[in-house]
Write a protein that binds this DNA or RNA. Structure first.
Lengths: 143, 143
DNA sequence: CTCAATGCAAACTATTTGCATTCGA
DNA sequence: TCGAATGCAAATAGTTTGCATTGAG
């Protein structure tokens, strides 16, 4: 089931409503590889859809996270970011501390070891966050 | 070189000053296994040392992070936390999303794989963050 | 003495909320 | 029609800063 369907299903089950704003936000949000903060997405949306307010964008992103099609990220720059989430495939991040470049990676080996660690502590993992901070190729050349 | 020395050395080299407040904060901060937010540490300090202000605690924690004896954490509860840092030994966290329990773990195997991932992307890692969120033993029993 | 540090209060930033109005089902 | 959603503005929460005063070197 794709993310649009997951969202629609969630809305239906909870008795919520599917407004044009939500549709617009969902489309733009999913159709990007960015890691938007509320503000960034709001500014981007505003160009084409001046009627969408900041609070709506914010509440909608929260809703996406709630229904599982987005995850909240915090890279330490003081802004919460959101990214579209695939149920089946988790990824983590390399973050360039100089230019802000974000590279995604997946590492099944790490995921597996994580499970072992959790098991040792009788911990039941719901989700995780794994970020490597440093200099990207370009920045470390210039540095 | 222990963390107190690292701090003193940093202060000396930068021409800063070693005040009694900083000494107090450093002592209490290092002598704990907690992951303090500015507010928590401030409240704790205030009991014994009513003269220390919030801003001083905050600036001092930032200073600790700056000189490398503390690291900033963000577990998504909206508060920045600080923990004493050992140069030689890095650890990561299991965070219980229900009761807030924090367990530390180290996994050399993961560290090694991380290095490989970074190398693949010509990334130079400065530091990283790795957190597993879920239910601790106690909470998953009750849940 | 000099300049960094402190403590207070005020400013800022990101996020969240109250409420009158709009709009989907 | 009814209640959820919106948009605005105002409130919150956490963090940071300006400034007069204090105090370390």
């Amino acid at each position: 089931m794709d993310r649009v369907s997951v969202f629609n299903e969630y809305v239906r089950q909870k008795g919520l409503k599917n407004t044009s704003q939500r549709e617009t936000i969902l489309t733009v949000f999913l159709d990007s590889t960015s890691h938007y903060s509320t503000e960034e997405l709001y500014l981007k949306l505003r160009k084409e859809h001046p009627k969408i307010g900041y609070a709506t964008v914010h509440r909608t992103l929260k809703l996406f996270a709630e229904c599982g099609i987005a995850s909240e990220l915090n890279f330490g720059d003081g802004q919460t970011r959101f990214e579209p989430l695939n149920q089946d495939q988790h990824h983590d991040h390399l973050v360039c501390t100089q230019c802000g470049l974000i590279i995604e990676f997946t590492e099944p080996r790490i995921e597996k070891i994580q499970e072992q660690v959790a098991a040792q502590h009788k911990f039941k993992i719901e989700n995780h966050r794994h970020e490597l901070y440093g200099l990207c190729a370009r920045c470390s050349k210039q540095g």
